[in-house]
Structures are given as structure tokens and as C-alpha cells.
Deep mutational scan, measured.
Amino acid sequence: LQAFIKTLTGKTFTVEMEPSDTIENLKAKIQDKEGIPPDQQRLIFAGKQLEDGRTLSDYNIQKESTLHLVL
């Protein structure tokens, strides 16, 4: 599935991932794409901060969901 990552500066980019991917995997993909170390990334979806060990499906993240990236 493709999801949108929106930063506080208003920049939006897309990442490809599977519902079974962990938040940790997602942070690694963001690092590959944007060069931001995972330990500096905080991802917010539906008002909740996402925990590394959980999966996208745990948070009911669907295709074309928008996640907010806070540094």
C-alpha cells in the first residue's frame, strides 16, 4: 500500500509498504528516502504516536492514509 508522510514544514512524500510492516520498518524507509535517522522520527496517525514494535494494521493504516512526521 502507498501512504503519505507529511512533515511539519508541509512537505509530503509517499512510501510503499505492507500492512504487516512494523513502524520500525516504516521509519527505515523514511530514512532511505529522506535521510532522517529513525531515532529522530515521531510518527503520528489519528492523533496517536506510533510505537516501533506495532504494525500498520495494528493502527488500521490503509492505503493513501496520511501520517504526520514530527522531528
Rank of each mutant, 00 (worst) to 15 (best):
D21M: 11
I61H: 04
L26Q: 00
D39G: 11
V15R: 00
G35A: 04
S57A: 14
N60L: 11
I44Y: 15
L50N: 01
L43G: 00
L69E: 01
P38R: 14
K6Q: 11
L69D: 00
Q62S: 13
S57G: 11
K11L: 09
Q41Y: 12
Y59H: 03
Y59Q: 03
T12P: 04
T66I: 15
G35V: 02
K48V: 15
T14A: 10
A3R: 02
I36M: 04
Q40C: 10
S20R: 08
L67I: 15
N25S: 12
T14Y: 12
K6W: 06
E34R: 09
A28L: 15
P37W: 05
Q49A: 10
F13L: 06
I23Y: 01
Q40N: 09
I36F: 13
E16R: 06
K48A: 10
A46F: 10
E34W: 15
D21N: 06
E51Y: 05
K33G: 04
K29H: 05
S65C: 05
K33H: 12
T7K: 04
K6F: 06
K27D: 00
E64N: 15
Q49N: 11
T22D: 02
F45I: 06
T7R: 07
T14K: 08
I36D: 01
E16H: 09
R54Q: 09
G35R: 05
D21V: 03
L56F: 07
T12F: 10
P19A: 12
F13R: 00
A28W: 11
H68G: 04
T14I: 13
A46G: 11
K27T: 01
M17S: 04
L71M: 11
E18W: 13
V70F: 14
P37G: 04
Q2S: 10
F45R: 02
A28K: 15
A46S: 08
G10Q: 03
N25Q: 14
M17N: 02
Q40K: 13
D58V: 02
P38F: 13
G10I: 03
G10K: 03
K6A: 07
E34P: 00
G47S: 04
Y59P: 02
T55Y: 07
D39H: 13
G53Q: 10
L26D: 00
I5V: 08
K27M: 03
T22W: 04
L56M: 08
S20K: 07
L50V: 05
K29E: 03
K11Y: 15
I23A: 02
I61D: 04
F45N: 03
I30F: 02
E24R: 14
Q49T: 14
Q49V: 15
K63V: 09
R54C: 08
E51P: 02
Y59T: 02
K29R: 11
E34T: 15
Q41R: 00
Q2W: 09
D32C: 07
G47W: 03
G35L: 04
L67T: 02
L56C: 03
K6I: 15
E34M: 15
P38E: 06
I44R: 05
G47R: 03
L26V: 06
D52H: 05
D32L: 13
K29S: 04
E34C: 14
N60G: 14
G47T: 03
M17E: 00
T7N: 05
I61A: 04
V15K: 00
D32M: 13
F45M: 10
G35E: 02
I36G: 01
Q31G: 07
S57L: 12
L50R: 00
D32T: 11
L1H: 05
E16A: 09
L8K: 11
D21S: 08
F4Q: 11
Q41A: 04
T55C: 05
V70R: 08
E51G: 04
M17P: 01
K63T: 15
Q62Y: 11
Q40P: 01
Q62E: 10
Q62K: 13
I36T: 07
K48Q: 14
G47V: 02
K33S: 09
G35I: 01
T66H: 15
Q41V: 07
S65Y: 08
Q31L: 10
F13G: 01
L71I: 13
K11E: 09
F45W: 08
K63M: 12
L1C: 05
L71H: 06
S57W: 06
I23K: 01
G53K: 11
S65P: 08
R54H: 12
I5T: 01
G10D: 04
I61K: 04
I30R: 00
